[in-house]
């Protein structure tokens, strides 16, 4: 059986990050994607961590994740109703800096962008924050 779209609605709590990781892993396997799931898992984990900590400021709310395959892309859409939070507004991490100069922030967003092929953010007063992350499945999608 194939699914057009898989959805998870979950409380924005840090303890649920492992549930979110399992959802990504099982979605990829239900879509017959053989690629290693850790890159998408990590990118989604970083995005959801930011939502829990910054968009909802740790006060809770709902995160809605949907997974689907569009053309040759695995697409994860993450929605929340917290404060507007645009990942691209965070300054990039200074990766080349040595230990003393290295800043502690910005790393999660850097990882998201490196691990996915495209990350786009939008805010709508009615719908809240929407983050769409795309991973191209060149040669990695199993034919049904």
């Amino acid at each position: 059986m194939t699914h057009d779209q898989l959805e998870l609605n979950i409380d924005a709590k840090l303890k649920n990050l492992s549930v979110i990781a399992d959802f990504i892993s099982s979605s990829m396997s239900q879509f017959g994607i053989e690629a290693d799931d850790f890159e998408v898992q990590t990118a989604v984990d970083e995005a959801c961590t930011n939502i829990i900590k910054y968009a909802y400021s740790g006060e809770g709310g709902i995160i809605t994740l949907t997974c689907e395959v569009r053309d040759n892309d695995f697409v994860v859409t993450i929605r929340d109703r917290g404060k507007p939070f645009d990942p691209s507004s965070v300054p990039p991490s200074d990766l080349g800096a040595d230990l003393d100069k290295r800043r502690i922030g910005g790393l999660g967003i850097y990882l998201m962008r490196r691990l996915m092929d495209d990350v786009s953010y939008s805010f709508d007063a009615k719908k809240g924050n929407t983050l769409v992350m795309r991973k191209t499945l060149t040669g990695k999608k199993q034919k049904h």
């Binding site: 990050l17 990781a21 850790f38 898992q41 970083e46 961590t49 502690i104 790393l107 999660g108 850097y110």
Partner: peptide, 8 residues
């Protein structure tokens, strides 16, 4: 598994 929170 490790995320940026662990790296930090």
């Amino acid at each position: 598994y490790i995320s940026s929170s662990g790296l930090r």
